[in-house]
Design a protein around this nucleic acid. Structure first.
Lengths: 195, 195
DNA sequence: CTTACATCTGAACGCACGTTCAGATACGCT
DNA sequence: AGCGTATCTGAACGTGCGTTCAGATGTAAG
């Protein structure tokens, strides 16, 4: 029945997603053809359809996987009790996680408009969930008097925008390490929301 | 049948750019065809080539125009002497300017990879010039002791990312006015760089 | 060795793409 | 009234698109 050896499905499937991730991030979803993906994988275009029903689903799978990874990774961390420490942890986590997967991050921010309305709704819901985790920290901190922000919703979006921006210019060979970046950004975030 | 009305060059040219701006912002450069633009303008596709040498130039012209507008608008403002006031002015200007042209902003951030290398270099140079204006403020403020940032380059990029993020979620009908947004963001930026 | 089937090829489908250009049109000018 | 020309049409070019599918291929299991 199910082939267990010599089968290519366990190689080709992941390879297709890896190649699609790279090409979509580099050239954009609309500018990449199924034939380009197939060529890079080393198969004919028709073979891709053993692994994805269509091009749209390929994009959606990548974005959904990225958002699931993000939420799982954050939720599986130890949550510091201290609210300031929890914000610091969020900042460090967000930077480290995003710098580790620049291509998935890029796609998830740039290709939203290429999703069907149904798929878009799914991704948006996941994104809102992530933002909600930060907003909860800011709200609790404000309630207990350690943070002072005029609007927790805006502060949430402002902090995330600021942190995510790092992916647009960070280069591994640059002059600052990830740890240094985490510290620099933490100082700015900490001050910006402090009472 | 060809020309059906009077001379249109002074109407058609701007209309092509306006339609291209809207369609590129909505669907993405690669996903919009010259025929779609032409249909929206009300001409045949061939007529577009009286106004642009090719599709690439249409994109480049929009982005170059946006960056020129941005730099001109900023440089033609009265520059407050006080360095804190100058930063506050930058924050207010950046938010107001970007919220007034969400489509051009969107294109200028999202379609960079669809520019030819030569055109990309031009836009990047203009962008660096804009960033430099903010970095100068931060540097001067740090030198005179009113600002405390560990790294002016990173602080520059962080502030711009935070401010530009507002364009991704702002809706004119929303609960906050532009003036309120400017104030909220100013408080966060001020605190984040304060000594 | 044969069979079953997962996997892949290669060709084909209809359609749309960016761009070119000869010719049609209608205005400004004399 | 008629000419010159800016402007636009409509067709065409070659190319590539996403997707489908009958048939080839090669391995695992019997």
């Amino acid at each position: 029945m199910a082939r267990t050896q010599g089968s290519h499905s366990e190689i080709t499937g992941p390879r297709i997603r890896a190649v699609a991730l790279e090409l979509f991030a580099t050239h954009g979803f609309a500018a990449v053809s199924m034939r380009q993906i197939a060529r890079e994988v080393g198969v004919q275009a028709g073979a891709l359809y053993n692994y994805t029903p269509d091009k749209q689903d390929l994009l959606f799978t990548l974005m959904k996987g990225h958002m699931d990874d993000l939420l799982d990774a954050y939720d599986n961390r130890a949550r510091p009790d201290d609210i300031v420490a929890r914000l610091k942890d969020f900042v460090a986590f967000h930077i480290a996680f995003h710098l580790e997967r620049p291509q998935a991050v890029f796609i998830s921010y740039m290709e939203l408009r290429n999703l069907t309305p149904e798929n878009f709704a799914v991704i948006e819901e996941l994104r809102r969930g992530y933002e909600h985790r930060l907003e909860t920290i800011l709200s609790e901190g404000r309630a207990s008097g350690v943070f002072d922000v005029p609007d927790t919703k805006i502060a949430t979006l402002a902090v995330i925008a600021m942190l995510t921006g790092v992916t647009t210019w960070y280069r591994p060979k640059g002059r600052l390490s990830v740890a240094e970046l985490q510290e620099v950004y933490w100082q700015m975030v900490r001050k910006s929301v402090s009472a």
